[in-house]
Every structure is written in C-alpha cells, then in structure tokens.
Write a protein that binds this DNA or RNA. Structure first.
Length: 492
DNA sequence: TTTTGAGTTGTTCGA
DNA sequence: GTCGAACAACTCAAA
C-alpha cells in the first residue's frame, strides 16, 4: 500500500466489537483483531434499538460485566471505547474517529440483530473496511443442523441427536497471549454515563449479594460445579434447596464464558457418563432455543402453534386479572412454592429451574394468563433473561411452543413442593411467614388446623394469603380451556 | 409416498 | 403406600 507510510498504517487499529461475548478467552473476533499487524481497540455500543431493550436486571448485570471486561482489557493495555446509540451509526463513526481498517465481531441470532449487523457489514465493506463475523455464542449455529428434508428441527430429541452426530463442539481457544493495544485517542463515555444501575430506589442489593458478574465469577461457578455437583446432577438439579445447578445462565447470556469451555469442562470431568450426558443435554436445550429463535424469529411475540391464537386467556388487564398477575409477581399467591420462586426472582434476579416450571405453569394454567405476560416479567427481572431461552421456555410451559408440554400436564404446586422441597429448605427461606409450619402443612397451609397455624405464628388471610385460586377448580378450568383448542386445527 | 415410533421435567383415579 | 392407565390427538423425523 504505497500511499501509506509504514508508521501511519501500523497505527490504524483493528476494532474488536464486543456484544454478547464479554470475555477474552475463546473469543474469535478478538483473536482475529489481535492476530494481524494492527493494534487493537475494543468497542462496546450500548444500543437499545433494533433488538428488544434489556430489562432492568439485565442492565444491572451488563454494568458489572462491562466493568469486568474493562478491567481485563486494561491489564492488556487495550482500550475499551464505550458508546451509546444506534450501532448502525456508531460503528462507522468509530471507524472514522480511529482510522480503523477492520471491524470484527461475534454473531447474534435475533432478527433485529441480524438485520442490523448485515447493514453494518455492508456499510463497512462499501467503505473498504474489513468486516468479519464469527461464532462465539453457540456450539452449533442454527443453520448448521437440518432435518432430513432440509428444514429446522422442531423436536428436541432429534435435534440433540443430530447435534451430537454432527461432531463434538470445537475446543475453546485461549485468549491471545499478548495484544498490542491501540495508543490513539477517541471519544468514549464512562461506564457510569450509560446509567445502567438503579438509583432510586436501589433494589439491587440482593443481586450484589448473589452474583459476581464477569468471567472470574463464571469460572468460579463452573469449577465448583464440575468438582462438586456434576456427579449428582441428574437428580440433584431438580431440588431447589440444594445448590446443585451451575448458575452459569447469566454468564452464558452475556458471553462471559464460552459454551465450548463449559461443554469441555464437563466432558473431561471425573463424573459418571450419564451425568455428563445429562448436563450436555441442558446445554443443547440452549442451542435448541437459538435454533428455534433463528428459524422462527417471532418466537418471543407469536404463538409458535397458531391454534393458540384463539386460546381463551383471561384478561390480565381487567381489575381482577391485574390483581392476580400482581399477586403472582409479588409472591403472594398463597401457594408457598410459587411464592418462594417469585420472591427468589425478585431478590436475586434468578429462579431455580424446577421452580420456574412450577410458577410458569401456575400463571398460564391456574390463572389462565397469556404466557407473554409472564415472559415479560421474567425479561425484566431475570439477570439471565435471554431472547431465545426465555421465550422458548415460556412457550414450552404454555403448550404453544415447539415440542411443548401436553395440555394435561398441569403442575400441582402442592405436590411439586412436597416432592422437590419436602423438608422445605427452599420454601422456608424465601417465605418466612410459613417457616414454622411442620412439613405436613408447609405446602398447604390452608389445610392446617387452627392450633398448628397458631403455633407457627400464622393467620391465613393476614400474615400469609389464602390461595388466590383453588387448585382443583383452576385445574378443571384449564383443562376445559385447552380442550377448546383441540377442535381448532393449526393453520398450515 | 407411506409408515412407524416417538415426543424433558405431570397428575389423578381406581384397583 | 404403590402401581398402571388415562388424560387426545397430533406432529415430527426418519426409515
């Protein structure tokens, strides 16, 4: 390139554009930026347009994940530029400000994200800027697995078989050993300028006590899981009172740890083969959700099975409906296991998977509430709120999704509580009003004799609510409602 | 093209 | 307490 002097061209940087891949290890976009002759500048664009805006809990997480990333990059002397606004405008403008000759990023799979990235790539290429994208988020990208007839999978089991048969996920690649950081200057915001943290009120105390966002926290959870929990995983994972799950979901959501690293850490662990298989299946559920989201981009807003469009949901904006939705959100349904889950969510930004199913089934089936109302609440309150997992899982529990739960699968909140939290460790912790009840009545306080309630310092309807719906009545009502669908064929 | 086997996580009822 | 059947019929994926 004769028109540039060597010294001038060597200062033109490569941009590593971070999005849902807030890590240095196994980050192919960063590796690509670091592999050339060019110095590297990192970029994060806080962009609430195009894709669905992040919920409040996710914003809190993002702040700390970015802080952790910034610290890691700082150790390498790589600057991180923070910008805010539509990435379609921001990325080209950062290229102009820095004189960058290449921009590298890892792919996302939401409809809005794909559209935006394609436009940015076209724009950059038209300006003779190298633009290349990679896979950091998934073990199997959605287009790489097809059924025999060439379409997407809509049933999990054949999807998971096809995924495994297509090859073991590739090994994670370590972070570049040394990166030459760009020494130029360009406009950047401070992290605090993004205003990601709650202020009035500061509701994030429970989140701070529970989580360590960033790669270090992710690695700690993974190490503890592999060492202590993986062996017993198939059974223990269902018991919310045990700390027997990975608690990696928010870390995976923001890409602080690579799914390839997680897969292989389990693969080489000293644990029974069936435990490793079961854990890998859970990672493949995440892959399946992304497969569905990519091939059915409306997954978050439209019933996957269109016959659910006529489902007789109760109106959750009516006075009574709104009251019931609020009782569910606040953990005041009168069913202790349901209330425990909803309070865990509010306090920690997380809920144990078993309990997510119980509260989801309760909202959709006992309260006949449109799954989208529950999905929206989870989106706002979960630190792991994921555009694929959250939507696919709500459709699954509602019955409207791919490979969904059959209509007659209605969780009984009393039985679920007794079966998976029999001693009540979880429920007593999150619902202290019922903590003194004996096991026998813990999950059904309305059946407790007056003397038992008195000994437990409880007054139903006063210190703890009576059930907002009767289980048997609600169950029969749900069965009726779902029966009305069986006469309605799906649109082709 | 047709056939076949199967499909994450449950509950209730009656014997 | 335990066990098996019923709860529907349909769609999916592969042979």
């Amino acid at each position: 390139m004769p028109e540039f002097s060597p010294s001038a061209s060597s200062t033109a940087p490569s941009i590593a554009w971070f999005r849902n891949d807030l890590r240095l290890d196994d980050n192919p976009a960063l590796a690509k930026a670091a592999a050339g002759e060019r110095p590297v500048v990192a970029l994060y664009v806080f962009d609430q347009s195009g894709d669905r805006p992040l919920g409040e809990a996710s914003l809190w997480w993002l702040h700390h994940a970015l802080a952790a990333l910034q610290a890691s990059l700082n150790d390498l002397k790589v600057p991180l530029l923070l910008r805010m606004g539509d990435a379609k405008d921001i990325v080209p403008s950062v290229v102009a400000d820095t004189g960058a000759v290449g921009v590298y990023w890892n792919r996302r799979y939401t409809a809005g994200g794909i559209t935006k990235d394609a436009a940015i790539k076209a724009h950059l290429k038209a300006d003779n800027v190298e633009a290349e994208s990679f896979n950091a988020h998934l073990l199997y990208e959605p287009w790489s697995l097809k059924t025999g007839s060439g379409g997407p999978y809509r049933v999990f089991t054949p999807f998971s078989r096809a995924a495994r048969a297509s090859g073991t996920p590739s090994q994670p690649t370590p972070a570049p050993k040394a990166i030459r950081g760009w020494s130029g200057t360009a406009d950047t915001l401070e992290l605090s300028d993004l205003n990601l943290l709650p202020t009035h009120p500061d509701w994030a105390g429970g989140l701070r006590d529970t989580w360590q966002p960033g790669t270090e926290g992710a690695r700690a959870n993974l190490a503890s899981f592999v060492a202590d929990k993986l062996s017993g995983y198939p059974d223990d994972r269902n018991v919310p009172g045990l700390a027997a799950t990975t608690r990696l979901s928010p870390h995976l959501r923001f890409g602080e740890i690579s799914p390839r690293e997680v897969w292989h850490a389990a693969e080489i662990a000293d644990a029974p083969r069936d435990s490793i298989f079961k854990f890998h299946q859970e990672l493949l559920w995440r892959e399946f959700s992304y497969h569905l989201l990519y091939h059915y981009p409306d997954l978050g807003s439209e019933n996957h099975q269109s016959k659910f469009d006529t489902f007789p949901w109760l109106d959750h904006t009516s006075v009574k409906g709104a009251e019931q939705l609020k009782a569910w959100q606040q953990g005041q349904t009168g069913y202790p296991i349901v209330d425990a889950g909803m309070r865990e969510l509010w306090h920690t930004g997380y809920m144990h998977n078993r309990v997510r199913m119980v509260v989801g089934s309760f909202l959709v089936k006992h309260l006949l509430t449109d799954w989208r109302a529950g999905e929206a609440w989870f989106w706002d309150t979960l630190v792991d709120a994921d555009p694929a997992n959250n939507t696919a899982s709500w459709q699954w529990i509602a019955g409207s999704g791919a490979d969904a739960a059959p209509y007659f699968r209605i969780f009984n909140p009393v039985l679920q509580g007794e079966k998976f939290d029999g001693d009540g460790a979880y429920t007593r912790h999150w619902v202290p009003e019922v903590a003194k009840l004996p096991k026998k009545y813990l999950h059904k306080p309305w059946e407790a004799p007056t003397a038992v309630l008195r000994d437990a310092d409880m007054t139903l309807g006063s210190t703890y609510p009576r059930p907002i719906v009767d289980h048997k009545t609600a169950r029969d009502r749900a069965l009726q409602a779902f029966k009305s669908l069986s006469d309605t064929p799906n649109a082709a």
